[in-house]
């Protein structure tokens, strides 16, 4: 214990923040034994080294960022194409090898198993490509950078966000922008996903991010679906946040899918990943798509499917998923203004 006090005094000495009283205490400790004196000299020096190392560490971080940004520009255009071909073909080669390897390792027995799964998979594919239009936006900004826009919402203080998987599939980089302050763009990475259910968990990975405090809503994993119940959603079908409301109109989603429900809220591209709230301000679903043929009906994934993926994260420090609802009895407009800061616009660059 005395060692800890001594090292604290050493640090304060190094920072030049000793009080008069502490100065006396340090002097006494140093007079006590030569060992303490040696300890003092070594550790004050060590603080300097540690501090220098900290400066170097910051420099190295900046340097890496700058060089990353810069290295993209130095390749001349022709070289760039060759570079890309090489890059892509190596990626393709790796993928092919990976597929072959998997087939080889899993053997014939599981191969048959895969054929069975494949039916389900193809079902999902037709679901998305033929009838159900994925709610994403392909935008071309002036400098011809293509990105998708969607919505995500906070589910834990560590910066975990829930959204639709189809948005972030094949992503190159994901930026999240807070609904209440559009000037701050932060990088996020894909932490977990379930392709079949079309749900993904992102984590804000930007160095400027610290934490998300006081999430006002909770996730209701066991919400009993009743037709006609009031629901509303907040999402980015345009550049600023848009509110939409309606009712639960069917127990099941597209093609009688029991993992999702149908709601009578008109949704638009960009709404993918938007949370669906009930009148208590509880998240009961995530907008995942709509039926192109039928106007005004959208599909939302039931929040129960979020539970599995969140549970799978529990080994991943997602321990503080927030469950306390502080807006339950507020009128709708106040609920909404409390919720907005926790909704994020996401931009996905490919």
């Amino acid at each position: 214990m005395s060692k800890i006090r001594l090292i604290e005094l050493c640090e304060k000495f190094y920072e030049n923040s000793l009080s008069e009283h502490e100065k006396q205490e340090l002097e006494q400790l140093l007079n006590l034994s030569d060992e303490n004196k040696k300890f003092f000299d070594e550790h004050v020096n060590f603080f300097k080294e540690l501090n220098d190392f900290g400066e170097f560490y910051k420099f190295k971080t900046t340097l890496n960022k700058v060089s990353e940004r810069y290295s993209g520009k130095v390749v001349s255009s022709r070289l760039g194409v060759i570079h890309k071909i090489v890059q892509y073909s190596s990626v393709a080669a790796v993928s092919i090898i990976a597929v072959l390897f998997t087939l080889y390792v899993t053997g014939w027995f599981s191969f048959k198993h895969q054929i069975q799964n494949y039916k389900q998979l193809s079902n999902t594919i037709t679901t998305i490509s033929k009838n159900q239009k994925s709610l994403w936006n392909i935008l071309f900004s002036s400098n011809e950078v293509t990105y998708l826009r969607g919505t995500a919402f906070a589910i834990s203080s560590e910066g975990f966000l829930a959204t639709s998987y189809h948005l972030v599939r094949d992503y190159d980089s994901v930026l999240v922008i807070n609904a209440s302050d559009s000037t701050i763009k932060m990088h996020a990475k894909l932490l977990a996903y379930d392709q079949k259910l079309d749900v993904a968990i992102l984590k804000i990975s930007d160095s400027i991010f610290s934490s998300i405090k006081n999430i006002p809503y909770n996730l209701n994993f066991h919400y009993p679906i009743e037709l006609g119940n009031y629901v509303y959603t907040l999402g980015f079908s345009k550049n600023s946040i848009v509110f939409g409301e309606g009712s639960i109109s069917s127990f099941t989603g597209f093609n009688e899918d029991t993992n999702s429900i149908q709601i009578s809220i008109p949704t638009n591209p960009g709404n993918s990943g938007s949370p669906v709230f009930n009148k208590y301000g509880e998240v009961i679903g995530i907008i995942c798509g709509k039926n192109e043929g039928k106007e005004g009906s959208s599909y939302a994934l039931h929040s129960k499917v979020l539970k599995n993926i969140i549970d799978s994260l529990s080994g991943n420090k997602a321990t503080s998923i927030h469950f306390k609802n502080t807006i339950r009895y507020l009128p709708k407009n106040q609920q909404i203004s409390k919720i907005i800061p926790y909704i994020f616009k996401i931009e996905i660059y490919k």
């Binding site: 960022k65 700058v66 940004r69």
Partner: peptide, 14 residues
């Protein structure tokens, strides 16, 4: 540790 300066050094000297 000024990022602008580092970027400038890159541009000029790389």
């Amino acid at each position: 540790n000024n990022a602008m300066v580092i970027a400038y050094l890159y541009k000029k000297n790389y």
